[in-house]
Design a protein around this nucleic acid. Structure first.
Lengths: 72, 72
DNA sequence: CTGTAAAGTGCATTGTATAGCTCTTTTCTG
DNA sequence: CAGAAAAGAGCTATACAATGCACTTTACAG
């Protein structure tokens, strides 16, 4: 997932849950400013920040092998 | 995936590819010091740093819904 | 159109990730 | 065990992420 996709995944999930940035910020313990920056594509969050946000949204950060390009 | 698991995923993949930290650092454009800190569990990399590393290893960062926790 | 809530932005401060250099420790292989 | 390579750690400088506060813009209900 590219940067933008990660952002969208978060935004969509937040919308689906009908949660505002403000609430998400509070629940996750991440600063509102930080969350805003991230969602508006202006950030480069640390892994911990990303995990805090994802966690509250019932999501998680994964690292997996890319789909093999052998015959893509 | 928890922090430690992410680290292990990277380390294992790097070992599987028989690549040293030094080489990985060079290939990914991430500082050797940064990589060392990360792999030894002392870091909190930014998303971009993590992606650079994962990329070279043929891996990618994903964000997905956790296996439903509704009745955990 | 108006008011309100949510989202986005400028500015400033503080903390820390990044990075290079050097040195120590660990892990192999012969 | 000896030597070498790889991994880990201390010290330091710089860049930038995280954060709060105040203000602007956008979205939407009435």
């Amino acid at each position: 997932m590219h940067f933008t996709e990660l952002i969208n995944a978060i935004k969509e999930r937040r919308n689906a849950l009908q949660v505002t940035q403000e609430t998400l910020a509070e629940l996750s313990g991440v600063g509102l400013r930080t969350l805003k920056q991230f969602e508006s594509g202006k950030g480069n969050p640390t892994l911990k920040t990303l995990q805090k946000i994802a966690d509250v949204l019932g999501m998680e950060v994964n690292l997996k092998l890319k789909t093999v390009t052998r015959n893509k």
